[in-house]
């Protein structure tokens, strides 16, 4: 019998704890597939965040370190600088990266750390129970914005890919989405390119993945994909914001 689909070698056999419809599983799998395809499992160190994906170190069959909330880019800097032969990536959500970890991500990008950052943007804090994130959409109801995000009080959502692309240090910055199979294939291509830039020692690489959180959004997965397309996509345009080849 011919095997046509199986668990990536870079994933453990552990069952994930994610809610039905959550896109973390898709993103995890893509990262693991790329590690397999590039043949770098034995030289990869992943840095886990705090948030829903805090337990990613149980699912990836590579060396892993967990980080305090928001500090993954600093931890990754420590690992990569002392062992530059390793492939080091962080996997972070929007509360982790765009709120408490804003300082660490901006400075890691600006130093041009040769690391890869996988940024999951689902416009809400997941693990703590659906609070407002820096990426929450205007008017979006969360447990700490019960009447919807009031931009007069909380400002507009932060667009990380745009923000990081303003830095003058060469880098690869891209935003993709996980709401359709087509976009998932595009996301994997972006992730592969991000890891390849790191392996070539070229630059810092950052892939923002628009994701859904049916549980905290309070709608079904199908409705969530529609909401992402109709509400998030107009504000968070997809595409490559910066490449190291840019003049």
């Amino acid at each position: 019998m011919k095997t046509i689909f199986e668990r990536p070698q870079s994933m453990t056999k552990a069952e994930t704890h994610y809610c039905p419809g959550c896109t973390h599983g898709v993103a995890h799998r893509m990262v693991a597939e790329i590690i397999d395809e590039l043949g770098i499992r034995e030289k990869t160190v992943g840095i886990a965040p705090v948030g829903c994906s805090v337990l990613i170190y149980r699912y990836m069959d590579t060396d892993m370190q967990s980080a305090a909330h928001g500090r993954a880019p600093a931890v990754a800097t420590g690992v990569k600088r002392v062992r530059p032969e390793l492939c080091v990536y962080t996997y972070q959500g929007d509360g982790d990266l765009a709120s408490i970890g804003m300082g660490e991500i901006v400075h890691a990008a600006n130093r041009g750390e040769k690391i890869t950052v996988v940024f999951i943007n689902n416009a809400v804090y997941g693990m703590t129970g659906g609070q407002m994130a820096p990426t929450t959409m205007p008017g979006q109801k969360t447990t700490t914005s019960p009447k919807g995000r009031d931009v007069a009080q909380s400002g507009m959502p932060i667009r990380m890919a745009e923000l990081l692309s303003t830095l003058r240090t060469p880098s690869y910055v891209v935003r993709s989405s996980l709401h359709t199979p087509h976009h998932i294939i595009q996301s994997k291509q972006a992730l592969r390119r991000a890891f390849q830039y790191q392996l070539a020692g070229t630059c810092f690489s950052f892939v923002e993945l628009l994701s859904i959180c049916p549980t905290n959004w309070g709608i079904t997965p199908v409705q969530s994909n529609k909401w992402l397309e109709e509400t998030m996509l107009p504000y968070y345009p997809l595409g490559i914001f910066k490449t190291p080849e840019d003049k």
Binding site: Q65, A74, R81, H107
Partner: peptide, 26 residues
């Protein structure tokens, strides 16, 4: 050797967490 001027003490100490975890004297 490796010298990095971090953006804050928060980051500097997390960098030594990473480097120490990677098994070097730091």
């Amino acid at each position: 050797g490796v010298f990095v001027q971090a953006e804050s003490e928060v980051a500097a100490s997390q960098m030594i967490y990473g480097a120490s975890g990677a098994g070097v004297r730091v």
